[in-house]
């Protein structure tokens, strides 16, 4: 595996290997502290994303490697008009592996075609963000002990939410997964995702109110509903509270349901939920570092 552009570039077997390795790292991080001694990760962030960049850098530093890079296009030669292709070809001379984020969709595909070294797409606009999906899968595996036989609820903006689309596609590859899609009509999943669900014969339902469906879920994946996505103010006022998870709604959920969120959250999960043991989103963020450690090791072919 030399390039990771989309979560579906990985077979379920490869995902299993990454998850198993991440598990081993989490059990005994010190055993992996020198696995990447002498290796350099370049983090090329043409748009700012503090969380993703820091998790990549923390992952490489925790493996004993070093990091270099830039955190916005302004502080790179892109500001002078250099192409993505030229930037990555130059950086390849200085680094062993590249993690790249770019605001334009498909930028990672361009970069991957230009370099020999391993390259990880750390987000290309609204297109793909495979390490978020891997983080989500590791979190589900650790929290639920399995990736099959689950009822997965996804709530909020399901139309524009890239993480939601990737997670649905990734979970569709496991046995006996049921999806409950909770969103206002304006923000339902795009047709191509619904077509995949229908054509694949998946059990799924689309509902408008979280209260109506939360009781059936093993996992609740929350995303933010932005006011500007609504066509009219009336609908926004009518529905906004349906997409805010609070302690009262949590009383309707199973005792072993978990709440996930890609973060950052704004107000879609009340802070009162944070202390509920079912709130898994900060544990999910922690998984983000370990899954990236496992991925870097796999891509650098470090044993």
């Amino acid at each position: 595996m030399k390039k990771l552009i989309s979560p579906l570039d990985l077979s379920t077997g490869e995902i299993d290997e990454i998850i198993a390795l991440a598990d081993r790292i989490m059990e005994n991080p010190s055993a992996f502290a020198h696995k990447c001694d002498g290796k350099i990760l370049a983090t090329l962030f043409f748009e700012p994303s503090t969380r993703t960049r820091l998790s990549f850098e923390a992952a490489m530093l925790s493996l004993g490697g070093k990091v270099l890079g830039f955190s916005s296009a302004n502080s790179s030669s892109a500001a002078k008009g250099e192409s993505v292709a030229d930037t990555v070809r130059t950086v390849e001379c200085y680094a062993d592996i590249i993690a790249m984020r770019h605001p334009k969709e498909g930028a990672a595909t361009v970069a991957a075609s230009k370099v020999e070294c391993p390259l990880i797409n750390a987000g290309d606009g609204g297109h793909q963000h495979p390490t978020q999906t891997l983080t989500d899968l590791l979190t589900i595996h650790r929290e639920k002990g399995r990736l099959d036989n689950l009822t997965v609820g996804l709530c909020g903006d399901l139309k524009f939410g890239r993480t939601v689309h990737s997670l649905i596609r990734a979970m569709m590859r496991y046995q006996n997964i049921k999806f409950i899609l909770v969103s206002p009509k304006e923000l339902q999943v795009p047709d191509y995702i619904r077509d995949d669900l229908v054509n694949g014969g998946f059990d799924f339902e689309e509902v408008e109110r979280l209260e109506d469906a939360i009781g059936a879920m093993d996992i609740l994946y929350m995303t933010r509903v932005q006011r500007e996505r609504f066509f009219n103010e009336e609908d926004y006022i009518r529905l906004r509270d349906s997409y805010i998870l609070d302690a009262e709604k949590m009383t309707m959920a199973k005792s072993d349901m978990i709440v996930m969120h890609p973060l950052p959250r704004v107000n879609e999960i009340s802070t009162e939920v944070d202390s509920d043991p079912r709130a898994a989103y900060f544990r999910q963020a922690r998984c983000g570092k370990f899954v990236r450690m496992a991925l870097i090791m796999k891509m650098l072919e470090v044993e």
């Binding site: 192409s83 993505v84 292709a85 770019h102 605001p103 334009k104 969709e105 498909g106 930028a107 595909t109 361009v110 290309d124 606009g125 609204g126």
Partner: peptide
């Protein structure tokens, strides 16, 4: 025609 596509900005692609 996607204005967010890398082909809209990257030279000689």
């Amino acid at each position: 025609k996607n204005p967010r596509c890398i082909t809209s900005v990257e030279q000689e692609l």
